[in-house]
Amino acid sequence: MAKDIEISASESKFILEALRQNYRLDGRSFDQFRDVEITFGKEFGDVSVKMGNTKVHCRISCQIAQPYEDRPFEGLFVISTEISPMAGSQFENGNITGEDEVLCSRIIEKSVRRSGALDVEGLCIVAGSKCWAVRADVHFLDCDGGFIDASCIAVMAGLMHFKKPDITVHGEQIIVHPVNEREPVPLGILHIPICVTFSFFNPQDTEENIKGETNSEISIIDATLKEELLRDGVLTVTLNKNREVVQVSKAGGLPMDALTLMKCCHEAYSIIEKITDQILQLLKEDSEKRNKYAAMLTSENAREI
């Protein structure tokens, strides 16, 4: 049975008073997202994401399977966000029904799977009998808050990085070409959802929050672990660069004014724009690094610029 982290009274008073005076523990401003470091591994679909002290690793894998009977034209896609005590001793191994674990996996599922970020119809091989089953496994290595945001970035970067083996279909028989024989094929990504988490704090008392008109609640972006432990409410917004809100989850917590929540969504958009561009840029660099001899090996004629 894991023991919850107990934050000391002096630490919590300090953090809350600092927030009232517009200071955060790590010196960021209230609307500043941590710098995201994305590293791709040697294998396709191997991504590590680091946001401050939060470290998350994602591995994409695939195998041939039978599609569901009621969806014969779609492939299978599963995301696993099981947490273990490696991330922190406050977590229990294999506890998938814990409140926070359920919310995390549901938000990632709504953001990535339900929204159709991965084209599952493109995973179909032989309708009704064979399809690709793609699996995204997220491993939480170190917890300093922001797991939902980090996992979403990791899963999306992994899916965009991953390449599945090329296949040839001869009637009911499928030939899976090994990676050294034929170039593997990237997955179909229809849009890139990125999550941003806002944490809310109530500087006054409950009465003022519910009955008052001042709307003085504090909202910060991308809370660290200590900020997460002390927060009164949380909002996770997922957006993509097409100015679409993919999902919003404010599951209870401190009641917040609707206009403030709208402002949060707009703030989130500018953040995901930057992160999406960063992911695309890093993917491009990674692919150039892998193909650095492409210029030499091509049989294209020299072109006049």
Binding site: K110, R114, S115, N209, I210, K211, L235, L239, R243, E244, V245, V246, Q247, V248, S249, K250, A251, G252, G253, P255, M256, D257, A258, L259, L261, M262, C265, H266, Y269
Partner: peptide, 24 residues
């Protein structure tokens, strides 16, 4: 989930895609 007669939201749940500009 709206609190009383205020404009404060206790619950906000969006599960399918919706354009950001229409949300307000």
């Amino acid at each position: 989930g709206v609190v009383g007669k205020s404009e404060k939201l206790s619950l906000l749940l969006v599960e399918d895609k919706i354009p950001l500009d229409r949300l307000e």
